[in-house]
Design a protein around this nucleic acid. Sequence first.
DNA 1: TCACGAGTGTTATAGCCTCTAACTGTTATA
DNA 2: TATAACAGTTAGAGGCTATAACACTCGTGA
Lengths: 225, 225
Amino acid sequence: MVHVKEPSATPSASALARASGPDGQSPPPVSRRDRQRAQTRDEIKRAAYAQIADGGLGALSLNAIARTMGLTGPALYRYYPGRDELITDLLAETYQEWGEVFRVATARVGGTPKRQLLAGARALRAWALEHPERYDLLYGRPLPGYAAPEDATRETARAALDGLTALLAAHRGVGPESLAAREAAVLTWARLHGFLSLELGGHFDDLGLDVDRLFERDLRSLLAG
Amino acid sequence: MVHVKEPSATPSASALARASGPDGQSPPPVSRRDRQRAQTRDEIKRAAYAQIADGGLGALSLNAIARTMGLTGPALYRYYPGRDELITDLLAETYQEWGEVFRVATARVGGTPKRQLLAGARALRAWALEHPERYDLLYGRPLPGYAAPEDATRETARAALDGLTALLAAHRGVGPESLAAREAAVLTWARLHGFLSLELGGHFDDLGLDVDRLFERDLRSLLAG
DNA sequence: TCACGAGTGTTATAGCCTCTAACTGTTATA
DNA sequence: TATAACAGTTAGAGGCTATAACACTCGTGA
């Protein structure tokens, strides 16, 4: 095997390892280059969010992102191996944010479990209405050939569900590990999602309903049952 | 204005009028050609369903459809002005089918409103599990630049909701036009959708739950409250 | 009967996309 | 300061939607 200088047509292994690490919070970047690199990746992500905000997830185009950044298309492949990996990154980030919205809202309001559940649900709805494209990312339809990597998402989703389970268990006075509590959490989650999904999809439009009021009604009955 | 024979680069106006008529049940085709044309359009639609069944809605490609039919891409533009119009056609057809599944299921079982509601909900779930890609078509979020034409879909959606409203009103002993009945219908719809959406999205996987049983539990509590 | 026009198909092409290859310039560091 | 990794470029393959300009097939009407 001769020692030939490889022309490195693609980014080096180390660069891409850093680029597409499975988790979002690796040890903080140290060198100046790493900082700039992280910054560029962040700029890409922000441009991506903006792009799916108007145009939908399917409108996400590396080429277009590059253009808004004043680059050519192939340049982005230095930062992401491909379109799918970018989506995965957005997805993981958004899952985390979603979980945090609930966690922060419930923690801040404190008080009874019921009170916390109300605050959490309202916060989630507010967040979803503010970032419909991100909600889509989580619960909308998967892209063309894109399949979300199980590990990255399932774990975070499960964590978010656990928070809900704990509060519901406390609210109902059952063990947080009980089947009843877990089932209640899933059904509550489904109910909340159903409302948000239809609302964001515009399916409540033109029905002549006070959607805010309807949401509150649903919440009450949810926590009463 | 000289009388020049136009080379008809695009399909004639009449052909496309027939091709993309807003409603699915125009007066039945008469001539042999019209019958063949309708048959071809149907073949296109079936190929389209098959394509989104594996690959998702974003994988819908006129080119690929043409290939499976032994045609070249541009040939399909004789039958649909474009990809969006094909999607619209699928959507309208599926909305209608969705409404009919509920209508037929409730009508067939008869009996009390509650009994009919149970049957209707179960039928919808069965249909959704059997045709997840069609469910997506209805309640997934719109494609890239695609915006569903309001008129074609809203009307059918409203009709389907009306059936649910009537049954719920009877079940609860309120007027079918009352705000309470309409709100109950919307919330029921949202609840059902939330469950189906998460189930189809695979979000219930690996949670160690008996999903069928969970659905029945949800139904009971839904009709009790 | 037979010409003609509508309908149905083709190839060629423009312009978008993702992604790879090959190349050049820059910069951090050994 | 020399060098290797990094960050960008252009060129191009192959997919897509869609249009333009053809060619062919039929059913129908004079």
